[in-house]
Design a protein around this nucleic acid. Sequence first.
DNA 1: CGCTATCTTGAGTAGCGTCAAGTCATGTGG
DNA 2: CCACATGACTTGACGCTACTCAAGATAGCG
Lengths: 248, 248
Amino acid sequence: MATSPSVKGINITALRIACSACNLQELCLPIGLTREEVERLDAVVYRRRRVKRGEHLYRAGEGFDSLFAVRSGFFKTYLLSEDGREQVTGFHMMGEVMGLDAISSDRHPCSAVALEDSETCEVPFSELETLSREMPSLQRHLHKMMSREIVRDQGIMLLLGSMKAEERLAAFLVNLSQRFQARGYSPCAFNLRMTREEIGSYLGLKLETVSRIFSKFQEERLIRVNNKAIQILDPDGLNAIIGPCMLR
Amino acid sequence: MATSPSVKGINITALRIACSACNLQELCLPIGLTREEVERLDAVVYRRRRVKRGEHLYRAGEGFDSLFAVRSGFFKTYLLSEDGREQVTGFHMMGEVMGLDAISSDRHPCSAVALEDSETCEVPFSELETLSREMPSLQRHLHKMMSREIVRDQGIMLLLGSMKAEERLAAFLVNLSQRFQARGYSPCAFNLRMTREEIGSYLGLKLETVSRIFSKFQEERLIRVNNKAIQILDPDGLNAIIGPCMLR
DNA sequence: CGCTATCTTGAGTAGCGTCAAGTCATGTGG
DNA sequence: CCACATGACTTGACGCTACTCAAGATAGCG
């Protein structure tokens, strides 16, 4: 394995997607690195991994070696309780990094499953740590990524702990909209990759409640819903709903 | 300031509590470091800061320079929304580190206030980063701390998103009990430092609900409640309540 | 084309929130 | 040291939001 450039006849080098050639540079690990630094990062980004819709990238309990950056596609991460309750802890799109929660115990506490055919870059964590010792800008960026994850989770605590169902769903739609926009897609027309049940799990609601509120938002001309296709008709209206619960 | 060893006649060196002499070594930053490494860490731990009950350690929006380790006392961190809703994001006791969420934006997203007279160690973050570049074990420990914070927050997402009021409160009591035990205190008799309202905010409940469930637990002989004094009479009973919602 | 998963909508309900009244602890100033 | 003010807590009655259960519609997939 160490010396072979190919596995099962596939050229590993070709499967590697160089960070320096990747169109996610502004979103993913290389943010803020010089060109030379990105090239050094290239050397540790392990390989591309394809994950088909419905397949797991990793499962809760498995050992942790690598972070995964989403190159394309869409993932959810979730926790499973003893009695089968599922709590979706996040939806992850291209440029976002998964697996930071596994560092603390060297095991994945949650499972990650692809909601559509997806590709990831595997980043062996110990090599990332080694590299970040030599590259302060990479070290800084890694710390910011982890901290941003903490902030994101605290935002969801705020949402789950103190917002009403309609506020939660409006916040969810606005967040998705912003993330699509940041990736060059339309902020006001997109397809949901997750089911109503998965949205509900993420937001602490039942799927029927999600469905009802989508219908209500549609009646109020805030959005148009057609199954998974969402159009945001009145962004200001949605923002007005979440206005009071925004952070000061 | 740079050269003076004293401020207002107080010897700064004396105010510094050496990590190497601190009785929190097993809980705080120095976990897993060699003796020599702990001594190097000593050199960056800035100074002790006393925070009286009700005083803020930092406020949301303030610039971020340092992490704070709780040496003694008890803190809560909280977010404030536009319309004044408060979401408590955590309770922090000795040995725990606060401020990791501020790294991402160089500002504190939440406020931290002492719930009793407390002391902290201030750790300038940029110096910690520098040191962790030279000490892989410190680097690793910092990463684990941040990751543990992510896991903790995800656990609260599970609690807020999929647990009933009684399960939440049982989980809260068991968690507190374990943390007191880990610090050498009795796991089955302790004083709450926070109000019912703060507990409610943390758990996504109203203070009346918290009060009612405390009373119900008392009727069921699971606990004894006397204002802030809590006795856990039946730990197994409490664990049975949260059993179904534990992670697999 | 039919099967299955997903979604929508309705009716009834339970759990938790709201409002209100009263008790109890804490601390402050006379 | 006591009187009083204030904040914290408890408990009850009632209401509303979101959950449960159920039936039917629709879409996606083999």
